[in-house]
């Protein structure tokens, strides 16, 4: 077990790398689409809702296969790592919009009215008044989302992205020591994901205490 641990740790690093990349890129798109879903032209709403529906009602494995088959078909040849990140990104944005939208909507509407009365445009009010207040409320669910992404990234093993699950599978295939490998892989995932979800719970408590301490 000690022998294979370094290999698995390196693969865990890849897993975390992929997940963090997808989270950060996803936040950029999630914010843009989430804001558009709240104050953008009404024309966008069904498009964004449709996208969320597609992401949420198809299995992630199918989305991974689709990226794997369709990107080269469209003449876009990318390394597997990048295909994996893109598949995870496509999936994550669908969930992150639904983190951003409620956070924006949870900011008291008086805040917007006050910004309005100061002569701010809707977009300026969003940028200067609403988004900064909503951003802190997005932090706990986004930490949770990272935990979900670490879990979801295991599916990328089906297209041979060399992350933790794939590495475990490869070592099993060459050594047949499935019990040892699976226990180690499970433990690594479990610790990583538990740390992240404790982090999310901690942040949630911190942010809620902070809010309740604010003057009304």
């Amino acid at each position: 077990m000690g022998e294979i641990l370094p290999r698995l740790l390196r693969a865990l690093a890849t897993t975390i790398q992929i997940s963090v990349l997808a989270l950060l890129l996803g936040t950029v798109f999630g914010l843009l689409l989430g804001i558009a879903r709240v104050i953008g032209p009404r024309l966008f709403y069904p498009v964004i809702d449709g996208y969320i529906f597609v992401v949420r009602s198809t299995p992630f494995a199918l989305q991974v296969y689709a990226a794997f088959f369709l990107l080269p078909r469209a003449g876009i040849d990318l390394p597997l790592f990048v295909v994996g990140v893109l598949a995870l990104l496509f999936n994550s944005v669908g969930y992150q919009i639904e983190i951003v939208r409620p956070a924006l909507e949870s900011v008291d509407k008086e805040q917007r009215e006050a910004a309005d009365s100061l002569g701010m445009t809707r977009w300026l009010a969003m940028w200067l008044v609403i988004l900064p207040q909503a951003a802190r409320r997005m932090v706990p669910p986004l930490t949770n989302e990272l935990a979900n992404l670490v879990k979801a990234s295991s599916v990328l093993s089906v297209i041979a992205v060399y992350e933790l699950t794939r590495a475990g599978h490869a070592i099993i295939a060459s050594s047949y020591k499935f019990a040892e490998v699976l226990i180690l892989v499970a433990a690594l995932y479990f610790v990583t994901i538990q740390l992240l979800s404790w982090g999310a719970a901690y942040l949630e408590r911190r942010i809620f205490t902070y809010r309740s301490g604010q003057p009304i």
Binding site: S154, T165, H169, A179, Y189, F190
Partner: peptide
């Protein structure tokens, strides 16, 4: 419950796939 929810689903498939014949 925390183990099942805190590890990837595909891992449970591998565990079942390898452990049952084991």
């Amino acid at each position: 419950v925390s183990y099942i929810r805190g590890t990837p689903q595909i891992l449970h498939f591998l565990v079942v796939y390898f452990a049952l014949p084991g």
